[in-house]
Design a protein around this nucleic acid. Structure first.
Length: 526
RNA sequence: GGCCCCAUCGUCUAGUUAGGUCUAGGACACUGGAUUUUCAUUCCAGUAACGGGGGUUCAAAUCCCCCUGGGGUCACCA
């Protein structure tokens, strides 16, 4: 039998990083077994703009390179793939269950049901459905339906038995039906509820493996009972541990972003994100974009390989040592029985280490492409840069090397992309390293002369010239380097100094030195 | 609270199915050192865990029971 897995997001306008992990494992299992991975959109009673709500979800899949065999945009033989368009299928299934007596129309007023529930709770008894409507004759039911009496349709839970599953990650799990409330399967008008629609759809789509997060475990007995009533073969269930927040064991949730912002574990990621998004003109403070969303990582300039690697290792491992894995490697080695049972906290540090690894592996041309797109968005280079810019950019990228962990990092290296007069100095350091030292400005003047007069503007020539100057004056290079770097780049840390000078070019270096000298002069006077 | 799930370094995990090779391995983070004109890298080294109690056994991280702790879920949402 062909393995068929599915991911069934509701169109919420964003793709949750934990949901993405679930989707990834579904994709992996299908691909590993030469089966199909299906995207079904669970959009029942959602009246939002479908394009806006679904777009970001599909974008996330495309960005990570996870393709789907059936679903939106690609269609398939088991469609429609939007749950809202599958109503006739649900209706037919409901009619079938009504016919077989597996479900019943419940006319008990909701307030009454609620009261019973509350009473039981107060008295510490287990609440089970009263089933007052089960005794109604077919004619009585028909009459009430004809009179449009409000009601719901409930599953008649077989109370005398147990439901058991052999979960592919959890093993044997069982529930005692005598403790179960008869779940509502559809409203009086026939509109299906989640558990019912899902079961009908999974059955009709011939899903063989239901791989989903642990929070659905409690829905499972209902769905198993429904599958049985429908006469469907039972899919294999695999309940993955949910993705927890860093430094906590609670489910990672969009609602808690404000809290995460204050968490030390998340600090560095937020700092990076805020800075990069700031350069892009995106306000990261509002919830539109945050680390619980896949889009966040794309915007900040993470690589799909980095995110995928981190996601794959969240609740799964290949062996006792392998950490850096391409999607291909994960695919070749994936299995459900190596999925961990305990929930796993997303670790931003570890994510960054995977990211750094894969950025290091990326060919230069692809680094250039990634930087072009983010630099253009930050308006630091034109939309379609010419050869000169591209060649120079490649040199910058090679020079900064592993200092660029994500594409967004390039935006913090503004010194390569703005003119001398736009350079922003680190004020405190400028004061301390250039203005305050006795000969700080004089040194810069001397270096300006070297830069202006050197026969050739190359690393070798500049370096030896500066070194002999340093020696003459009885300095150490380490003493003058910070000031020089500050004058040239505005910052006290960064790529190797002489190559930076060479890359910037003689004229630009002179402008920067002049500006720094001028600024320092005026600061010293005042 | 009911039902269900889970429990190894700070974190992600290996080891648990078939008890000994585990004085518990790896990675991230952290600390120290070396390299480096800064920063980042790289390289070495180090700190650090089987939640507790009972069993079973010659032998338990591994099997059983209890406790504790954490979490999920309890809708005419999905």
């Amino acid at each position: 039998m062909t393995v068929r897995t599915r991911f069934a997001p509701s169109p919420t306008g964003y793709m949750h990083i934990g949901g993405m992990r679930t989707a990834l494992f579904n994709w992996l299992w299908a691909r590993k077994n030469g089966g199909q991975f299906i995207l079904r959109i669970d959009d029942t009673d959602l009246q939002r703009n479908m394009g806006e709500a679904l777009g970001p979800i599909l974008d996330a899949f495309r960005w990570l390179g996870l393709d789907w065999d059936e679903g939106p945009e690609v269609g398939g033989d088991y469609g429609p793939y939007f749950q809202s368009e599958r109503r006739s299928l649900h209706d037919a299934a409901l009619a079938q269950l009504l016919e077989s007596g597996a479900v019943y129309r419940d006319f008990e007023p909701p307030e009454e049901t609620k009261t019973q529930r509350e009473t039981c709770e107060k008295e510490k008894r287990v609440y089970i459905s009263s089933r007052v409507s089960v005794g109604l004759s077919a004619d009585e039911v028909a009459a009430k339906v004809a009179a449009a009496e409000p009601h719901v349709v409930r599953l008649l839970v077989p109370r005398e038995r147990k439901v058991t599953i052999e979960d592919a990650v959890r093993g044997h799990v069982e529930w005692d039906c005598s403790l179960m409330v008869d779940p509502v399967v559809a409203r009086g008008d026939g509109s299906p509820l989640y558990n019912f629609a899902t079961t009908v759809d999974d059955g009709q789509l011939e899903i063989t493996h239901v791989i989903r997060a642990e929070e659905h475990l409690s829905n499972t007995p209902i769905q198993v009972l429904l599958h049985e009533a429908l006469g469907n073969p039972l899919p294999v269930f695999a309940h993955l541990p949910f993705v927890a927040a860093p430094s906590g064991k609670k489910k990672l949730s969009k609602r808690d972003i404000a809290k995460y912002r204050k968490s030390p574990a998340f600090q560095k990621l937020f700092q990076l994100g805020d800075e990069v998004l700031g350069h892009l003109g995106i306000n990261p403070i509002d919830d539109a974009l945050s680390p619980v969303m896949v889009a966040y990582y794309r915007e900040v300039g993470f690589l799909p390989a980095g995110v995928l690697n981190a996601l794959a290792r969240l609740g799964w491992s290949l062996d006792d040592a392998t950490e850096n894995m391409s999607l291909q490697t994960v695919l070749e080695n994936f299995s459900l029985d190596r999925v961990v049972k305990a929930s796993a906290g997303l670790d931003p540090d570890k994510l960054m280490s995977y990211q750094t690894h894969w950025m290091g592996e990326l060919p230069l041309v692809e680094k250039v492409a990634g930087c072009v797109s983010i630099l253009a968005r930050a308006k630091l280079i034109p939309e379609s840069p010419d050869e000169t810019i591209l060649t120079r950019l490649a040199k910058v990228i090679e020079l900064v090397g592993n200092r660029m962990r994500v594409f967004g990092d390039i935006l913090t290296m503004k010194e390569f992309f703005v003119d001398a007069d736009m350079l922003v100095y680190d004020q405190k350091q400028f004061q301390k390293k250039i203005v305050e030292p006795e000969n700080g400005i004089d040194v810069l003047r001397s270096i300006r002369a070297i830069v202006a007069d050197s026969a050739e503007f190359s690393v070798a020539v500049l370096q030896s010239a500066v070194e002999s100057f340093v020696q003459e004056r009885g300095f150490k290079f380490g003493q003058i380097a910070p000031g020089l770097r500050l004058a040239i780049t505005g910052r006290t840390s960064g790529a190797d100094l002489f190559p930076t000078l060479e890359l910037l070019g003689r004229d630009e270096c002179l402008r920067r030195l002049d500006r720094a000298i001028g600024t320092a002069d005026s600061m010293r006077i005042s």
